[in-house]
Design a protein around this nucleic acid. Sequence first.
DNA 1: TATGAATGAGAGTTCATTCAT
DNA 2: AATGAATGAACTCTCATTCAT
Lengths: 228, 228, 228, 228
Amino acid sequence: MGIIERKEREKEQRREEIISAAEKVFMEKGLPAATMDEIAELAELSKGTLYLYYKSKEDLYVAVTMRGGEILYKLMAEATSPQKPVLERIKGLGDAYFEFFQKHRQYFRMYRYMDNPQVHKQVSEEMLGACKAKDQRIWNLGVNLMQQAIDEGLIQSRVAPVEAIVMLWAISDAMMRQIDGNSDYWKQLNVDLESTLKRSYEFILEGMMTKKGKHKFQPLKTAEEIAS
Amino acid sequence: MGIIERKEREKEQRREEIISAAEKVFMEKGLPAATMDEIAELAELSKGTLYLYYKSKEDLYVAVTMRGGEILYKLMAEATSPQKPVLERIKGLGDAYFEFFQKHRQYFRMYRYMDNPQVHKQVSEEMLGACKAKDQRIWNLGVNLMQQAIDEGLIQSRVAPVEAIVMLWAISDAMMRQIDGNSDYWKQLNVDLESTLKRSYEFILEGMMTKKGKHKFQPLKTAEEIAS
Amino acid sequence: MGIIERKEREKEQRREEIISAAEKVFMEKGLPAATMDEIAELAELSKGTLYLYYKSKEDLYVAVTMRGGEILYKLMAEATSPQKPVLERIKGLGDAYFEFFQKHRQYFRMYRYMDNPQVHKQVSEEMLGACKAKDQRIWNLGVNLMQQAIDEGLIQSRVAPVEAIVMLWAISDAMMRQIDGNSDYWKQLNVDLESTLKRSYEFILEGMMTKKGKHKFQPLKTAEEIAS
Amino acid sequence: MGIIERKEREKEQRREEIISAAEKVFMEKGLPAATMDEIAELAELSKGTLYLYYKSKEDLYVAVTMRGGEILYKLMAEATSPQKPVLERIKGLGDAYFEFFQKHRQYFRMYRYMDNPQVHKQVSEEMLGACKAKDQRIWNLGVNLMQQAIDEGLIQSRVAPVEAIVMLWAISDAMMRQIDGNSDYWKQLNVDLESTLKRSYEFILEGMMTKKGKHKFQPLKTAEEIAS
DNA sequence: TATGAATGAGAGTTCATTCAT
DNA sequence: AATGAATGAACTCTCATTCAT
């Protein structure tokens, strides 16, 4: 019986090895320019073996991005863990996303490439399903948090939690894209997009708070500003 | 002399014909799946001729997106033309972007695909330069408008005009991407992203206004709300 | 001892199971398109096990055709069994072949594909030998019958029995191939190949008969014609 | 204008060069084992160029067999040309087929492989159409000849010309297949299939003749037998 | 005996790009 | 300026077969 388990473990490990090799190649070249040959060579496996574990190049690509998704999830779950006051945790959600953006830029880019509908079509149903499930978990973190903040009377009850999260996510995501893709342009305009991003996030968050919320959140912010 | 000019004109026309053909193919298939063969056939030209006018498939792709950029520019320029009060015009900027999104979805998607750094690498310097110049003109419309609003005391002077515009753009852009790509997902969550987008835009805009600005803008909004 | 026999029996059974699975796949897809994977899955065995019983895909293919050969042999042996007059039995040989063609079309086709020298090269010596042995048994049925007819003075003695059988077989086989492969073509020409085949067969057979043979065979034929 | 014609000619020539190279490879290896790489190398062209002229390996295969068909047609047309009496020409048709079989064995085999329905599926409609057209021309030669013989009262009028030709073709084709594929087997049985074939052909032909026909044909045959 | 993971050679096909005309 | 034939590298993916367990 131990044998079966060991085999299972080895197989899982092999899958990870493949993903690791694919990760390097995809990050360096992007999906279209990456070749299965290169990935196979890096993984020290035959090309055929790759196809034993993943149905297509696109599926493998998605598998890699899911690793990024897992990282993002963990960062956000951590930021969300209930040690801190809820508003601070919502703030932390944005920070976690930014940390993901900064520390795992390549994963961020892979995600970004993948939200192209043209790419979706090449991915197997299973993979797409697994991917969406992971995404959902991430969204849920935020939505639950926001619901809690509403329940505690810190966020206006007229705000739907999902929409609130979408707004926060939207402002973050779009700006990160700009930071990533057009930083030269903005630098030459003397615009510090990073701080703009942070301020926008707080700005929107504050706008959704109740008086009670603003009261509780204020000190936090000031403390942080002192620190910076 | 007239001959040279005529030739010049003909050449320009040929470039447009090529773009028109490419446009159809790219919009239908996307960059990776489109082939120069298909474009050439549609343009009723030989493949070789395509390369006489554009250096590469990617360059041609960018040329097409620039046509979309021109459309967006015109829509925004119109919304920005000085018949209306400045705040209304800023509001109109968002509406223009949304109109572009709705009426020229394919162009929106091409833009979206193109802001991928991986794609940039394949594009010639000149093309990329021309593209950025066109982008800049669009940004400038907004920045100038915002500056004017600040000068008129309608937007808080502590807000940098560029940053203000970036925020507005960011929220719009990210949400449109969601509407375009994940509408099924949001529908099933009963989230109306379109109205969320509109409200976010106004929400951010209002947050940046002075008291004077809010005072002036209020009636507008109410009028609109009555209409809706 | 009993153990060894049981094992032997089980092994034989396993071989049959494999052939049954292979049969389905080969008949559906043909030799080139069939894959060992599919056969293994259908047989609920691992691919490796297949190779324990058969040396190659081609060997397995031949093994399946031999099953068809067995069917053909049985049909012919039945038609040949000595209840009826010998000439009728020779006639019955052709009918048996046609029955095989009609009721076991897939086997007929596999045979047809296999008489390609290119295919032979991929088959192991043993398999080819076994196959030829089975073929021989079939030929012998006819040859013996023909010999008997000659001995009985029904077929001209100047006719070599083997050659007589070859002629009858040849006309049948070639026409069945046409019926199978080009029936559309012949239908549009208003040619009923099936009856042409039957008439040709009798035509040749009669041509080889002695007067005595013709005399004896005539009533048969007439009876048949009345029935039809 | 000469330019266009020359180009056309060159293109046709290139098609022929490709067929010549393909011919060698296909004849040596058979369709499944042949590779486009090898053909391209032999043709001293790039693989891509091959696909400029032929849609697929299978199409190319058919193109080669059509060359064989042309040879067969010419042989038969020659044998059929109206210098000789019509019955002799019908006899000559069989000889022409046998000559094709003997002198162009490889083409015979390619034909033989191609009448496999599985192969048909991979061939383009155009190619298949062209192929059938060529086939038809060959059949027509025989059918017309047979009609003429009927008109001249040499062949029984109750025989449909198409069916008559089918019978003659069938006996020839099936025996040639045996000669080609199983000659060892027959040799060891001391059967001379070649002469069996010839006799069968005449046997069937004679069977269809009128008295007048037999009368005219007899001397011919005897003359031939004397010669042999 | 049975497994099934791994292989690896190589297949057919595509297509952006070039260049002689 | 325009052609379009030719290129050739590279692509993804397949599958019969092997072999350690």
